[in-house]
Design a binder for these strands. Structure first.
Length: 271
DNA sequence: ATAGGCCTGGAC
DNA sequence: GTCCAGGCCTAT
């Protein structure tokens, strides 16, 4: 589900639910999660306190009073469930962070691909990341510089977290449609004005998503949220051409062959 | 640059 | 049963 806007939304939920609370115990319920958070590490969390919750790209950082950091990544299907005292657990509870007041923050993750890791004070909590997709540092000049002589598509470049952080497969397609850029274009073939269009479009789709707190993505649900994603065969909102799907680097890309053609000047048809 | 792996559930 | 899925890492 989650790209930058959804993770931001989740971080706000976590912030409200856990800031200042003292951890009673942390239970790791799924063997796969134990690779990232071994039993020893989980056990060491008892008695620590969450002092604040930050977000960077698709990561959430739970800063602890001990100076350590819990780094959370939702991957495909992770999410928080806030559990009040006495409430039951969600069906796919993978990691339960229980607090001394009886409440809990539950990492719910059907596919169990997400991760929670404990990073000691002084160690890097995160890998190298490009500027935030919504940030001032993400500019046409930056994109062009990072794209120089790279033989990847613009679509793949947008998914590269070292180029721009927080964009995922859905909003990459959405942004390229908005910018009217063919997703198959080599990123180093974009000129300055095309880069500027892409950057503006990424920021626009991110901000739009941030302004409507849609927490979940569900296949087939709420088609109105997306212009092209998961709309193969449905009419383009600009020109009525059926939306096409292609696979790039193993991921689906949705696009409009007319609006996003390699040649300039797409025709526009009144809706 | 691409395929495969991690996992499970839902759609078909 | 088979195929597909919003992410990211590793190996080829």
């Amino acid at each position: 589900m989650p790209e930058l806007p959804e993770v931001e939304f989740a971080a706000r939920i976590a912030r409200r639910a856990v800031r200042g609370r003292v951890i009673a115990h942390v239970d790791v319920r799924h063997a796969a999660q134990r690779r990232a958070l071994p039993v020893r590490a989980a056990r060491s969390l008892a008695g620590d306190r969450v002092v604040r919750v930050e977000r960077r790209a698709k990561y959430q950082l739970l800063r602890l009073a001990s100076g350590r950091t819990l780094v959370v990544h939702f991957r495909m299907t992770g999410d928080w469930v806030v559990q009040r005292p006495g409430e039951g657990e969600p069906p796919h509870a993978r990691i339960v962070i229980a607090f001394t007041d009886g409440s809990a923050l539950v990492f719910d993750d059907p596919r169990a691909l997400g991760s929670v890791t404990l990073v000691e004070q002084g160690n890097d909590a995160l890998p190298a990341l490009g500027p935030e997709a919504t940030g001032r540092g993400f500019t046409a000049a930056w994109l062009q510089e990072r794209a120089a002589r790279r033989a990847v598509s613009i679509k793949a470049a947008l998914l590269d977290q070292g180029v721009v952080a927080g964009v995922g497969n859905i909003y990459a397609s959405e942004a390229l449609w908005l910018a009217r850029i063919d997703p198959r274009r080599r990123v180093d073939s974009l000129d300055a004005s095309e880069c500027a269009r892409v950057v503006a479009a990424v920021k626009r789709v991110m901000r739009r998503a941030l302004s409507r707190p849609a927490r979940y993505y569900q296949v087939g649900a709420d088609q109105l949220r997306f212009a092209v994603y998961d709309r193969e065969g449905a009419p383009c909102r600009r020109c009525r051409t059926p939306i096409a799907r292609l696979v790039q680097a193993g991921r689906s890309t949705y696009w409009c062959r007319t609006c996003q053609g390699l040649s300039p000047s797409p025709r526009r048809v009144r809706p």
